[in-house]
Design a protein around this nucleic acid. Sequence first.
RNA 1: GCCCCCAUCGUCUAGCGGUUUAGGACGACGCCUUCUCAAGGCGUAGAUCUCCGGUUCGAAUCCGGAUGGGGGUACCA
Length: 457
Amino acid sequence: MSAVRTRIAPSPTGQDLHIGNAYTALINYVFARAHNGQFIIRVEDTDRTRLVTGAEDRILASLRWLGIPYAEGPDIGGPFAPYRQSERLDIYKKHAEELVAKNHAYYCFCTPQRLDQMRKDLEAKHLPPMYDGLCKKIDSKKSKKRVAAGEKYVIRMNVPDEGTTIFHDVIRGDISFANILIDDQVILKSDGFPTYHLGVVVDDHIMKITHIIRGEEWISSTPKHILLYKFFGWDVPLIAHVSVLRNPDRTKLSKRKNPVWVSEYKAKGFLPDAIKNYLATMAWSYPGGQDIFSVDEMISKFRLEDIQTTAPIFDTEKLRWMNGEYIRHMKSEKLKNIIYEFYNKKYPEKQIETVLPLLVERMKTLAEFETLAGFFFVRPPKHAVRSELRTALESSEWNHDAMEKTIRDVAGANAKEIFMELRVAVTGKTVGPPLLESLEILGKEETLTRIPSSAGR
RNA sequence: GCCCCCAUCGUCUAGCGGUUUAGGACGACGCCUUCUCAAGGCGUAGAUCUCCGGUUCGAAUCCGGAUGGGGGUACCA
C-alpha cells in the first residue's frame, strides 16, 4: 500500500484559520503521523469574488502557531508544486476538456439570469432546483464552434440519470445517492477557474492523496466527486467525513455566535497545546478516558474509525479549564517566556518571574495574567483610595519599604485591610493572590514597573 | 420542498447483546484546606440511554419507523 497522504484545503476567504479547519487539520495531521505518512496543505483560492488578501498568510501562520506542521504547502513547496489552485488553472482546464471529449461533460452557455429564472420556476413547482440540461442537447460540433467564436461558456459534468452512486465513508459506512438527484454541476467556471469539485478531485489525484478527511458539509457533494473519479478512470481515495463543530444553539459554528478564528483564541491567551487537546476531544476520546493528552500520545492511539459521528458543541468553558490545566503544569521558566511574549515584552521578565508563583493557579488564560497581576504593576488611581493614603502615595517611590511604611504609618494593625483597599482600587476586585504573600513579593523587588492606571476607574 | 447525516447527564463523552443500581470529565452545588479568590482533596445533584415497534431467553447496544436536530441543495468553498 502506498504511503498515507492527507491534506486540508483551506480557502483564503475568511479572516484567518477557522477553528473548524484547525480541527480537521489536526485529525488529518494525526492520522498521517500515525501511519508514518505526510500531511500537506493546498490552498483552494478559486473564488476570486470572495478572496481576502492576506488570508492565506494568516492561515499558514495560525497552523504554525498551533503546531500542526505540514510537509508540503504553498509557502514551502514540494514535489507537486504549486500548491495554490489559482496557479494550476491550465491543469483543470485540460482535465475539464478531457471530460468534454469523453462526453462526460459539456459546454453550457446559459446566462445567470436564465439559471435564476429556471430555479425559481422549479422551486415554485416544489422540484429540486437542478439544471435542466438545456445545453446538453446542443450538438457537440455546434457548441465547439460557439466556444471557438468566443462565446462565454461554462463546463458542466454530465451526470447519468440512471443508477445510484455509492461511496464508503470510513467512519459512517456506506452512503448512497440516486443519480437522478445529482445536478449537472459546473466544474469549470466562465472565468476559467475550476469549481471546488473539479479542483479537489484533480489535485487530490495528482498529489496522491490517499485519505480524504473533511467536514460533513461535504457529504452531499461527494457523489459528484465519485462520479468525476469514475469519469477520469481514477481510483477513489478513502473518504471520511468528520462532524462539524457547533454553536451552543446547535447550529454550525459561526462567527456571529462564537469566536471562530484561531487568532482570536491566541489573543485571548489560549495555549496551542490546550487548543489541540480540546479539539481532539471533540470527536475522539483517549482510551481509558484520559482527558489531558499530547498530540504525540494521540498519534500513538488514534484510529480513524473511532471518530465520533455526532456533531459536538464547542464549549468554551471546558476549553478554559483545559487551558488552565496546561498553564498550571507548565515549567515556570517556559510560562514566564510565554507571558513575556504574549504582552509584547511590556513587563520585565524578572518581574513576571517574581509574581508568577502567586498567579499560576488562578490563571485560566494568559490574558488573565494582567487582571491578576495588575495589583503589582499598576499604580492605583489616587481618588480611589482613602485620603490618608493619598499623600503618602504621592511621595512614595512605591517600593516595598515605602509601601510597608505607608501601610504601617497609616493603618498600623489594619495593614491587611489597607492592602485590600489598594487591590480593590487597582483591580476592582477583592479577590486575587493572598495579601501577605503579595506584600512579601513586593518586597523582593526594589521597584516594580509602575504603569499609570487608566483614569476614571 | 427535496436529498443526506446524526441522536447516552446542561456540555464533551465511555459503553460494541448479559459483568450497568449506565462510568468519567467540564460546569453547578456542598464540605475540607485557607489571609480573600483560586488550586487541591472529598462528596452531592444531574441521563425513564428521544419515542414507538421488532429481533432475542436477554437491548443504551442489532433492525424498522416516527420525531427532533444538523448539513447540503450556487459560475462559494
